[in-house]
Simulated assay, not measured.
Amino acid sequence: MSTPPGNPTSIPGQDALRPDCSNCFALCCTAFGFSRSADFAIDKPPASACPNLAADFSCTIHGSLRTRGFRGCSVFDCFGAGQAVSQGLFGGVSWREEPGSQPAMFAAFRAVKQLHEMLWHLAQAQDLTYSPELAGEVQDLRARLAAAAASGTRSVLGLDLDGLHESTARLLWTVSEEVRAGYGADDGGRGAFAGRGASAGNSPPLHAGADLAGARLRGRQLCGANLRSAVLIAADLRGADLTATDLLGADLRDARLDDADLAGALFLTQAQVTSALGSAGTRLPPALSRPSHWTE
């Protein structure tokens, strides 16, 4: 994947969490495996180089990934872990120069990607919270995660990632509740959220983890809804207002976002946006870029 186009405005701390493929040893094209599907044209086992990888670590079909059946590659975002591992933890020495470094480098990449993704969300959480005490907790955890990501390969590979995920999830949920409460959300993450709009009476229940594949939510006021980990594949969200909607981990593949307002959505990532379909009228958070295929 290439660095997203445009010049988005970052929340402080997010700039270092953007991919810079020119300083990476194509770790996303090697460390991870994938299976032949709608997102990938071939099978590729983990810890193996993609057949489309060039000698200089560039992609030989980068300009036509989507049309060649590699939509998953065009969506992937490492949150800057690629260059951090390649140039930081491994000092600019590639796995091709030192083949014995492959297992550790690929494992470190997988770990640092998780750390950087947590850092991305925590940066937004700190920017959103109204509570100085909660902001302090988030800042402390951000400092711990940043230090861990740069602590050296052995330390990174020995991290308790599950524990760090739990700590991050707790703080993100607390901030989400705080922000969404300002929009009347009181579901506590469990109950249904009907939303508002002309067809609200016909709406499926909206809650964390809801199966909303293909749901008709066009023009709906979904402000403050909790759609964490919801399946929104091919959902019609055209013209919908998703201000303060928690979209952490939501599956937005092929969701219709034409003219939707996601400028104030919570915990949205570039990968989620790139996997969806939108238009010039779609409003995005300042930190995210409009995918090129939206205008093509």
Rank of each mutant, 00 (worst) to 15 (best):
T3A: 06
S10D: 14
P12T: 02
P12E: 05
G13V: 04
G13T: 04
R18K: 14
P19I: 12
D20S: 08
D20V: 13
C21V: 07
S22H: 13
T30Y: 09
T30H: 15
G33I: 02
S35T: 14
A38W: 08
A41V: 00
A41W: 00
K44F: 03
P45I: 01
P45L: 03
C50D: 13
A54W: 05
A55K: 15
T60W: 02
I61W: 11
I61S: 11
G63S: 11
L65F: 05
G69Y: 06
R71E: 10
C73V: 15
V75Q: 13
S86W: 07
S86Q: 09
E97T: 13
E98S: 14
G100H: 08
G100R: 06
S101T: 14
A108N: 11
F109E: 05
Q114I: 10
L119F: 00
H121A: 02
Q124I: 00
Q126M: 02
L128N: 08
T129K: 08
Y130I: 06
A135P: 04
E137S: 11
Q139G: 03
Q139W: 01
R142L: 06
R144M: 00
A148P: 05
A148W: 03
A148Y: 06
T153R: 13
L157T: 05
L159A: 02
G163V: 05
S167C: 02
T168L: 01
E177S: 06
V179G: 00
V179S: 07
Y183P: 00
A185V: 01
D186M: 10
D186I: 11
G189N: 08
G191T: 14
R196G: 10
S199F: 12
S203N: 15
P205G: 04
G209K: 10
G214S: 09
A215W: 05
R220M: 14
L222A: 02
G224C: 06
N226C: 04
L227W: 03
D241V: 06
D241Y: 08
G249R: 09
D251H: 12
L252T: 02
D254L: 13
A260S: 08
A260I: 04
A260C: 04
A263T: 10
A263N: 11
A265W: 02
L266N: 08
A271N: 03
T274V: 10
S275G: 15
L277F: 04
S279T: 12
A280Q: 13
L284Y: 03
P291T: 06
H293W: 11
H293G: 02
